[in-house]
């Protein structure tokens, strides 16, 4: 590969890592801070992506569009819609054990997928929505890619900063306390359900933001891009590998797992090229990669559950009372 190609690949790689980093940080608020099992990350991701695609995208006779709203407004609306969806799911499951949330979020992910696929007037169905404008469409090739990467990094930094501020706040301390002993927190007079709902909605809003950033990055969304399991699963593996409850871990997890994912593709190609991989496996390379990521998750769960960067609750304020 020539140098410029390598460089643009590197830009692409970091852009994808940034999108995932936002998703993983969102999941960390739910799972890492509060122990909520959101197995429907893909739903909030897709809702965010489609929202911005519809409100900023070009007009069309086939589906809703042509509002021509600016990039930033698209992002904000994506967060709002994802947040509203989360509010709905949260209200149903907030007073039940986390398993129900897991099942309900799987259901929501499935329904979102069905709507995207079948409600052509809104989403253009399986054909998806293309020509989603990016904020730097005027620039050329690699310059645009770099400008957008910088934008992505700014958002990652912003979300990270918010998450860290929250992590040290009394709010997150209550969330962690709920995770450890819900009854005790309730006995202390806190509204456990409200705290939980807030965490779930906020996390989902960040996922919506991630979806919107993704949509403007690739310029095209379709139901196929959000395979409900894969999008959700890879974000979970990133968080658990990086370190649940640790925002730096979330960033590191996004980077490492996306690198593993990318490398596994090249390695499978290479193995197939030199004939070390049976043809059958070579043609099912994506399935093989998913299998390997699943295996990686199980190994982490068995051997290093706390992840690469374990959670470190801020000590000074964690006094017993």
């Amino acid at each position: 590969m020539e140098l410029s190609g390598l460089f643009s690949y590197f830009v692409f790689f970091l852009s994808m890592v940034s999108v995932y980093a936002v998703l993983v940080l969102g999941l960390n608020i739910q799972w890492g801070y509060n122990g909520q099992l959101n197995i429907g990350v893909a739903a909030f991701f897709a809702v965010g992506a489609y929202t911005t695609a519809i409100v900023t995208g070009p007009a069309s006779d086939n589906y809703l569009g042509g509002f021509g709203l600016p990039f930033l407004v698209g992002l904000i609306l994506a967060m709002v819609v994802a947040g509203l969806l989360a509010l709905l799911v949260g209200l149903i499951t907030v007073n039940l054990r986390s398993d129900y949330l897991a099942i309900a979020t799987i259901g929501i992910a499935e329904i979102v997928r069905l709507v995207l696929k079948n409600e052509g007037w809104l989403t253009n169905g399986v054909r998806g929505i293309s020509s989603i404008p990016g904020p730097f469409d005027g620039l050329s090739g690699i310059t645009e890619g770099m400008a957008y990467l910088v934008t992505l990094l700014v958002f990652v930094a912003g979300v990270y900063w918010i998450c860290e501020r929250l992590f040290r706040s009394p709010w997150a301390r209550v969330l962690r306390a709920i995770r450890a002993n819900e009854d005790a927190v309730r006995a202390a007079g806190k509204n456990v359900l409200l705290f939980r709902l807030e965490a779930f909605v906020l996390g989902s809003m960040f996922m919506g933001l991630g979806g919107a950033l993704y949509a403007h990055f690739v310029g095209f969304v379709s139901p196929g891009a959000f395979d409900p399991m894969f999008a959700t699963f890879v974000v979970w593996v990133m968080l658990i590998a990086g370190g649940s409850g640790n925002n730096r871990g979330a960033l590191l997890g996004a980077l490492v797992i996306w690198a593993v994912w990318t490398l596994s593709s090249s390695m499978i190609d290479a193995l197939a090229d030199i004939g070390l991989l049976p043809d059958q496996l070579a043609t099912q390379a994506s399935a093989l990669r998913i299998f390997l990521i699943g295996l990686l998750l199980e190994i982490i769960l068995l051997t290093r559950r706390e992840g690469l960067l374990p959670e470190r609750p801020p000590k000074a304020i964690d006094r017993a009372d």
């Binding site: 699963f233 699943g294 998750l297 199980e298």
Partner: peptide, 9 residues
């Protein structure tokens, strides 16, 4: 969930 994905792939 990991097992589900592994079985399927």
């Amino acid at each position: 969930v990991g097992v589900a994905l592994m079985l399927r792939s």
